[in-house]
């Protein structure tokens, strides 16, 4: 297969950046998208050019490190898939693809397709934790949790924090990410202690980081590699006004 790539190249945070076109030759349909880029990069290095910078770690779709726009859709056209698990058999010989970093005020570009997602860490630091007693580790199953609640909490906890939700949203809103964390912890008994302050502080951290607000369009849900549902955002909103009334 031959794939034409139009890639956002930006040498650093201060550089203006521009699109540059490359052609990937002899692409195997069995390659993952990132493996295809690895080959392109090897050729660039051989030619003495700067390779295309992109984030990746586990390449199994579970760590949340990779992610960029493939022709206008975060992680590419296949639903429920990170870009590392997107395979070239999804494309046709001669396809032209545009690769671009997540674009958001809160996610400044570091280089090429790599963005700084530490704004997500700040949201977690603001309340994405639970208090535990010090001392010996408690038995993992000492607190009983109903299966339906455990399942629902797990659905929310499945968020890998890749940032595709922010990238897809027309407002660059982090509502899906933040609400998944809030919902996950508000469902579990361990999360009850900080339940009210958590939602207030995490929403404040989300706003401080420069993310927009939720327009309830659900583009985030549609591109989320883990299928995190919009119902998490409804839960966050409900938790929010409950916290407001509890004040």
């Amino acid at each position: 297969m031959r794939i034409h790539l139009t890639v956002w190249r930006q040498s650093g945070p201060k550089d203006a950046g521009r699109f540059i076109t490359y052609t990937a030759e002899d692409v195997s349909p069995d390659q993952s998208f990132l493996e295809m880029l690895d080959v392109v990069n090897e050729q660039l290095i051989k030619k003495g050019e700067e390779p295309i910078a992109f984030d990746s770690d586990c390449r199994e779709g579970i760590c949340g490190t990779c992610g960029f726009m493939v022709s206008g859709i975060p992680h590419g056209p296949e639903p429920g898939t990170t870009v590392c698990q997107l395979h070239m058999r999804k494309f046709k010989d001669g396809d032209s693809l545009t690769l671009e970093p997540w674009r958001a005020e809160a996610f400044p570009v570091i280089k090429d397709l790599v963005v700084d997602r530490s704004a997500f860490d700040k949201i977690i630091q603001a309340g994405g934790y639970t208090s535990v007693n010090t001392g010996g580790a408690r038995d993992a199953n000492a607190i009983l949790i109903g299966k339906s609640i455990a399942d629902a909490a797990m659905d929310s906890a499945a968020c890998i924090g890749c940032g595709a939700c922010v990238a897809a949203c027309k407002n660059a809103s982090a509502a899906l990410f933040t609400s998944a964390k809030i919902t996950h912890l508000s469902l579990l008994p361990q999360g009850q202690v900080e339940r009210t302050t958590r939602v207030v502080n995490m929403v404040a951290a989300m706003d401080d980081a420069g993310f927009g607000s939720c327009s309830n369009e659900g583009e985030c849900e549609a591109v989320c590699p883990k299928g995190i549902s919009l119902k998490n955002i409804a839960t966050m909103n409900r938790e929010y006004w409950k916290a407001m009334l509890a004040d």
Binding site: T6, M69, T98, R103, A172, G210
Partner: peptide, 8 residues
């Protein structure tokens, strides 16, 4: 929240 628009 999105000062730079997407190309695509």
């Amino acid at each position: 929240a999105r000062p730079v628009a997407y190309g695509v």
